[in-house]
Nucleic acid binder design. Structure first.
Length: 790
RNA sequence: GGGCGAUUAGCUCAGAUGGUUAGAGCGCCUGCCUUACAAGCAGGAGGCCAGUGGUUCAAGUCCACUAUCGCCCACCA
């Protein structure tokens, strides 16, 4: 026990040393992750200014009657020798014995016979006919080897269910939460038979000095010998264990400091509310939004079940309770001890969440003002520029596991102290789990990953991106090696694309005009795709769907920019257009800006190497350009992309050697000028000879005899083959015809349906009609080709 | 006992305000070292969206119930 060997001062000194080391580790991790923090405003809850806030709040709550000291059943951890809060307790189930013993005229059940030595009452239901005669009596119960206890028989309809157990409940006010409540209600005495050391007290008579388990064994044996044990059964017992020590909690009566959550003492929006009511009201009213929504329900449920908050801890590290005593009578609460000799400070410290609960504003107080003993809290806040400017916080980001510990307590404290909400939005991220689905935790180092290790191995960018991509609000995520590897590939892709962009820009003529003046359909298409992307990314980001935003950016960059646009502009004639250089630069700039929050290091490096102005981290987020408005080019080039896929598919299926060029005949049904403008692109990307584009179908069926044909809504394309397998093609086209006919049938059915025509949105009916017409045209082409193959 | 969530491709997961043929990464199959990138490129296979009912012109998406799994809370007679 370091408290015994070191003493208070030395222990605290060592903890301070430990904290210094931990702080520098955490700082290094945050920096290595690329978090952009204002390091000049780094704060620690034990800083002088923050400590001043802690004692000031304590004093004020005490004055307002919201903090009181009183005996309560607390969750005592005999292993750690301290109380723990309700929220620091885990519930586990285990096999245990359940004892039913004779108890005067009653049979009472318990899983903890040793506590019965401290019983002061038996509670029964007031309408239970079995016990009517005894209600109100006081009965002496002599235990076989002592002591003799006197129990009062009380009737209670609230706590006693006549159907449960024997219908008679032995009341142990000193060692049971409920029994303590019953005792308070019926003014029963309290006998403490278990001490803080986990051993029986003098009140336990002959059992004094035994541990709880020793006493249980001995007492049960004595009861059995005396014939007082009716039965012993085995059952599954829910028990409370301390989250930190994993040892069973011993409920004990102790004088502790509490915050009263039910007393109406907080002026809020014109009413006097309890802390509970304020906490509930600010979320219900929408002043605070919790993301994801369903966490709000858990928050309400927690508040509904909330009891007074025990804030004192019997540990030495933390903010010491600002209460001083002199003798048994004198008592003072304040930041400093009162004048005079002999004042002793309360040895207990405050629950760590007490100071953390002040975080959104205690970090913003001006340290100089906080050091001025003349000022009270209100004056300190009024004179703190950061508080005036930055409070409330816009978005509070933390894990869902501390919604109750921290978020709820910040709401409680901040509304009470400042009259403001602490933040507008709470974004709760999920837990990062290890590969076995275990939550990573400080107390379980074997489950934890040190970001510095991952960063050394794979880099900070892939780690960040993997974490963002694999998690949505409130949902846990397993951090996998595969995810990080996939992200590494994206980062690498950006780097390689940058090399190509740099080379292309160096080889291109000077950029001409603005992107908005671009004419070539491929350039216009790129700008339109970007515009759609920025719009989507903005929507997703403002909806806190960070993973979704990142995914859209990734898909557009890789699938549209790299796979199509960069390939397309390798074509000399396109590359040499002055507008292309302008569009290329603009587009790549946009992607870098969009990627930067997710991939800060590589994008910044690329930005510098391309000699873009200033720092990317300070560059503006891309704008949605209203002038970029060419819907026809988007549809047309999309059709060209599909055309490329069709030709490549035919090549692949027919096993045409990659370097062999094929002859193609294209019959556009729409966007003919765009197909024409993309002639060279088609030729290059699909490896064809000069494509023949027929605006009006001229080629006879026989000319297409040795060809494979693909039919799309926007075009029909024929790829010449020396030996086309007509049977295979017929089968494929017939299958396509069938699916297209089914789709058309579905749409036509809809369009015939009166209810659809009356009730669907007009725009949707329009687009359904347009779709049906397109499919109709596709079907006509398919039939034509099938006929010619017949 | 009370509350909250999950169930979508072989695996890990996205699918905002209901809308026409449901997506990604990894894995798998085929072919390519094409002068940014083989950590890549091109093509492909693979899903009655857990089940049943309902609301709706229209359901992976909304509602009810069921099944399975997970988490949180709970006054351990």
């Amino acid at each position: 026990d370091p408290r015994k060997t070191l003493g208070r001062e030395e222990l605290v000194r060592r903890i301070i040393d430990y904290v210094a080391g931990a702080q520098s580790t955490i700082r290094a991790q945050i920096r290595a992750m690329g978090s952009s923090c204002d390091w000049s405003r780094e704060r620690y809850t034990m800083d002088a200014a923050l400590s001043r806030c802690v004692t000031a709040v304590f004093s004020r709550m005490f004055r307002d009657g919201l903090i009181y000291r009183g005996p309560r059943i607390v969750n005592w951890d005999p292993a750690l020798q301290t109380t723990v809060s309700d929220d620091e307790i885990d519930h586990v189930e285990r096999e245990a014995k359940f004892y039913t013993m004779r108890y005067g005229p009653f049979l009472v059940g318990t899983s903890r016979p040793e506590t019965k030595l401290g019983d002061t009452a038996v509670a029964v239901h007031p309408e239970d006919p079995r016990w009517q005669a005894y209600i109100g009596q006081t009965i002496a119960v002599p235990w076989p080897k002592g002591p003799t206890i006197t129990v009062k028989v009380v009737a209670d309809a609230e706590f006693v269910d006549p159907e449960t157990g024997t219908g008679a409940l032995g009341v142990t006010p000193g060692h049971s939460q409920v029994d303590f409540e019953i005792a308070r209600k019926h003014s029963l005495p309290l006998i403490q038979v278990i001490g803080e050391d986990g051993r029986m007290t003098e009140a336990a008579g002959p059992y004094a000095g035994m541990t709880v388990l020793e006493c249980r064994e001995a007492f049960v044996r004595d009861l059995q010998e005396a014939g007082l044990m009716a039965r012993i059964e085995t059952y599954t017992q829910p028990i409370s264990i301390c989250h930190r020590s994993k040892q069973p909690i011993e409920p004990l009566p102790k004088a502790q400091w509490f915050i009263d959550v039910n007393k109406p003492a907080v002026p809020w929006r014109g009413k006097l509310l309890s802390l509970k009511q304020v906490m509930k009201s600010v979320v219900e009213s929408g002043e605070i939004r919790i993301v994801p929504d369903h966490e709000e329900k858990k928050y309400y449920h927690w508040i509904d079940n909330l009891r007074d908050w025990c804030i004192s801890r019997q540990i030495w590290w933390g903010h010491r309770i600002p209460a001083w005593y002199r003798g048994p009578e004198e008592f003072y609460v304040g930041h400093r001890p009162p004048q005079g000799e002999g004042w002793v400070q309360d040895p207990d410290t405050l629950d760590t969440w007490f100071s953390s609960a002040l975080w959104t504003w205690s970090t913003l107080v001006d340290p100089k003002r906080a050091a001025d003993p003349q000022l009270d809290l209100k004056q300190i806040l009024a004179a703190s520029p950061d508080f005036q400017r930055f409070h409330p916080t816009s978005v509070m980001e933390t894990g869902w596991d501390i919604l109750f510990f921290w978020v709820a307590r910040m709401i409680l404290m901040t509304t009470y102290v400042t009259g403001q909400v602490p933040f507008r939005v709470v974004y709760l991220h999920g837990m990062v789990l290890d590969k076995d689905g275990e939550k990573m935790s400080k107390t379980k180092p074997e489950t934890s990953i040190d970001p510095l290790d991952v960063i050394r191995e794979d880099g900070a960018d892939p780690l960040r991106l993997a974490m963002v991509l694999s998690s949505s609000a409130g949902r846990d995520t397993r951090l996998s090696k595969e995810q990080i590897t996939a992200c590494k590939r994206l980062v690498n892709k950006i780097w390689n694309a940058a090399k190509l962009v740099e080379r292309s820009l160096a080889a291109a003529p000077a950029t001409e005009g603005t992107p908005a003046q671009a004419v070539h359909p491929v350039n216009r298409w790129m700008l339109m795709r970007l515009k759609t992307l920025i719009t989507t990314a903005n929507n997703r980001l403002s909806g806190y769907a960070f993973n979704d935003a990142a995914e859209h950016i990734r898909a557009s960059f890789w699938g549209e920019f790299c796979d199509f646009y960069l390939e397309a502009i390798k074509l000399e004639s396109l590359k040499q257009l002055g507008e292309t250089a302008a569009v290329l630069q603009h587009a790549f700039d946009c992607y870098l800006r969009l990627f930067h929050p997710f991939i800060p290091f590589v994008t910044e490096q690329v930005w510098q190497e391309l000699r873009r102005p200033g720092y990317l981290i300070r560059a503006a987020w891309p704008e949605i350009e209203a002038a970029h408005d060419w819907p026809a080019e988007v549809e047309g080039v999309d059709a060209v992309v599909r055309l490329l896929t069709e030709i490549r598919r035919i090549r692949s299926e027919k096993e045409i050697p990659p370097n062999a060029k094929v002859d193609v005949l294209i019959q556009p049904r729409q966007h003919a000028p765009i197909f024409a403008a993309c002639r060279e692109i088609i030729s290059r990307l699909a490896r064809t000879t000069e494509p023949v584009i027929e605006n009006a179908p001229q080629s006879s069926a026989t000319a297409l005899r040795n060809a494979v044909v693909a039919v799309d809504a926007a075009f029909t394309v024929a790829v010449s083959l020396s030996q086309a397998d007509l049977a295979v093609e017929r089968t494929r086209l017939a299958r396509q015809l069938e699916t297209e006919q089914q789709r058309l049938a579905r749409l036509e059915q809809k369009l015939k349906d009166e209810r659809f025509l009356q009730q669907a949105r007009p725009e949707f009916i329009q687009s359904t009609k347009a779709e049906a017409a397109k499919i109709g045209a596709t079907i006509a082409s398919l039939r034509e080709r099938l006929d010619s193959l017949a």
